[in-house]
């Protein structure tokens, strides 16, 4: 049981982190906090990708002085790399949006940023 839990723990962590990110996005009202939740969500997805590619006792897929040839899957790592950069680009852009909204509206409360509705 214990070892089962330990072996499933990475996936459970991913699920919990996803939920935390989603909860921050749904329940929180501050735009910056919502964006933090989004970053959390991104991190959870990244972790998920990496975890799916892990092999027990595998080594990193780098041949420079590699101790063995039993390597973890490299493709997911490449995908995650891409996803991380996309994540920071998205966060930066949306945070600057939030800054401009604060400048114009005087608030970053999502409940009050709703000139567009109906």
């Amino acid at each position: 049981m214990m070892s089962y839990l330990l072996l499933k723990l990475p996936y459970f962590t991913v699920v919990v982190l996803t939920l935390l990110g989603l909860a921050a996005m749904v329940f929180k009202k501050n735009l910056i906090k919502i964006l933090m939740g989004l970053s959390l969500l991104e991190s959870a997805v990244n972790l998920f990708l990496i975890v799916t590619g892990y092999r027990t006792d595998g080594v990193a897929p780098i041949y420079t002085n590699a101790p063995s040839l039993h390597m973890t899957l490299p493709t997911v790592q490449a995908l995650t790399l891409t996803s991380i950069v996309i994540g920071v680009a998205t966060s930066a852009m949306m945070l600057s949006f939030a800054m401009v909204i604060y400048k114009k509206y005087g608030t970053v409360n999502a409940e009050k940023v709703k000139k567009l509705k109906g």
């Binding site: 989004l38 969500l41 997805v45 799916t52 997911v76």
Partner: peptide, 30 residues
């Protein structure tokens, strides 16, 4: 500020959607 507000909404929703897509890709890839 209205345009920025709309842009933020669009970016937020698209990013959440894109992350769901990425998760699905991860599931299929795994």
């Amino acid at each position: 500020g209205v345009a920025v507000e709309a842009g933020l909404k669009y970016a937020l929703l698209s990013t959440v959607g894109a992350l769901a897509v990425l998760t699905a890709i991860g599931m299929l890839f795994a």
